[in-house]
Design a binder for these strands. Structure first.
Lengths: 335, 335
DNA sequence: CTGAAAGCGCTTACAG
DNA sequence: CTGAAAGCGCTTACAG
């Protein structure tokens, strides 16, 4: 059975394809009766508009690109789910693009998305130079950054208040009596991590606590790296009793290192993580964490990009959501 | 700057758009010199073919749909990454569709994918009746099932040998001396889970070990449910010392339940999980697991669907990969 | 080796 | 309220 086209419907109904198009899109004024009739015929022929043809004619594909470092990373998987859900609600499909934060891949995916004429792209990838995004903007494509920020880009963005997140983490540890603090940071390309560290360090300083340079380790975004750096750090003189990790993966590595050194969490060393992915709830003990509102961020990112491509909200909107301290088992009062 | 089209390139080169189209697609014979010339002009104009127009004319979108229960579930997130990578290698984009195994959502996504004229779809969703897939097949769309099987559907598929997986799990526990065994199974709609349980039970029987009915719990695909069912089961008379969980999420729930009852893993109760997602490596102790070759499955699923839509390999191919026992810390000899 | 022309299945002014 | 017609940017026989 061959697929019905708009011509088949028009012929059956004895009207022009323009009229059929109008009822499909709810545009123009069609007499109620004609509309019903056409709707029935569409149903009878099992007609579904060809979205490709529609996209070519209207220049709207109702497709979004989602650029993330790695969709298999739970944080981005959870972001993707939120983006997908909201996109679907609003009639958009989403194409996933895992870039590994690799410039070459970013370029290829960006070029691909342009060719595919996506209406907008949501970017969670940590791009170093906004240069890479220029091509997108020239293409007058809607762009929204998620969990990232590049104010100079002039794109809208939704992220958590990373500075406050770092502050919350520090306050929590300080209030529990910890004074020997340390940080597992992400790679410097990730500006959000820089903010978290800054918030943490500043707050510590305001309590009169300094972090020696060797108590701030810059790690790759991997469990193994968190493990390695935490292990080294815990063998330093002035062994920290409070450790702030800039994401759940690093915190898990730290947990393993601490355990392997024969120390206990939280008795000997408290750990505060960041993100609150599923990983934070499956460790033992479960992680005390500065939670990002992942679901909300995904939803808002879609809303922003869609507003943007609809020509609403001309000035790019930049939304900063509050982080939240979730106390679980990995932190305790200094004994 | 307005986007260049194939007409602009043709005009600049003083040739017809057919010729330009040929060099874009490497079809027909074009004199080497002309080709170079046209290529240069394309570069100069920064020309990129419009994939939508190309799709409409050629009836090939180079887009695949990926239907999974939930992209934020680590198992499917990891599958998605493998599918995306292989797809990208072969020139395909992938649209994610999280269905929550909900029939209504499956229908909507299937209909959407048809409208978008995707070339093929990879299905990891647990669909009860193949009915839902009929519409796809009628549309002569390439379909490949991943980590699922519906032999009656006549679609190609790639999955792990679930029966063998169940056997491996049982053998491992039996060899460690465990005789009081129990199983946390998935919802019956998931046929793969049925196989795993069957393999486990049969192998136990061959060792002369019977599982009482109340030692086989059917759970939802959630940590909480694994927790709840494991907890109940461990309070039964004849408390099991060896527990087989049909996925990592259930195993994590079980770990929590065991811990909460004041028992130790693996000393008091050994746990064997299934899947081997990142979750299996972050628990304490890390999970002994029957691993699925996730990366390979994703890659092969793309290969199968692409072969299918290219009209190669007419008879649907069904690939069954061997599972692998990975021994970590959650199992030990019965004390 | 290259081009003219039809066609893919829609949308959108425009005219009436 | 409805239709004729042009156009979206390509691909693909077909002819030469």
């Amino acid at each position: 059975m061959i697929k019905a086209t708009i011509y088949d419907v028009a012929r059956e109904a004895g009207v022009s394809i323009a009229t059929v198009s109008h009822v499909i899109n709810g545009k123009g004024k069609i007499s109620r009766q004609r509309r019903e009739e056409i709707l029935n015929i569409m149903k009878r022929l099992n007609y579904r508009p060809n979205a490709i043809a529609s996209a070519l004619a209207s220049k709207r594909t109702y497709t979004l690109g989602l650029l993330v470092p790695d969709i298999s990373n739970p944080f981005f998987a959870e972001i993707a789910r939120a983006v997908e859900d909201r996109g679907h609600q609003l009639g958009y499909s989403v194409i996933i693009c895992s870039t590994d934060n690799n410039e070459e891949k970013v370029k290829r995916y960006v070029s691909l998305l342009k060719q595919k004429q996506v209406d907008g792209v949501i970017i969670g990838t940590g791009v170093s130079h906004g240069e890479l995004l220029k091509p997108l903007q020239e293409h007058s494509l809607a762009i929204t950054l998620i969990a990232r920020d590049h104010p100079e880009l002039g794109a809208s963005c939704v992220r958590v208040h990373d500075l406050d997140g770092g502050r919350l983490a520090a306050e929590h540890l300080l209030r529990l009596g910890h004074r020997r603090l340390a940080v597992l940071a992400e790679n410097e390309r990730v500006t959000s991590s820089g903010e978290r560290v800054r918030g943490f360090v500043e707050t510590a300083a305001s309590f009169g606590v300094e972090l020696p340079p060797d108590h701030i380790a810059v790690c790759d975004h991997k469990i193994e790296d968190g493990y390695r750096r935490a292990k080294a750090m815990l063998q330093l003189a002035g062994q920290p009793t409070g450790l702030f990790c800039c994401n759940d993966l690093l915190a898990i590595g730290a947990l393993q290192a601490i355990r392997e050194l024969g120390l206990r969490v939280p008795e000997d060393c408290s750990v505060v993580s960041f993100d609150d992915t599923i990983l934070a709830r499956v460790t033992d003990p479960p992680l005390t964490v500065i939670a990002q509102p992942i679901e909300e961020m995904g939803r808002l990112a879609v809303d922003l990009v869609v507003q943007d491509l609809s020509g609403q909200s001309d000035p790019a909107r930049r939304m900063v959501l509050p982080p939240e301290l979730v106390v679980r088992g990995s932190t305790a009062r200094l004994s």
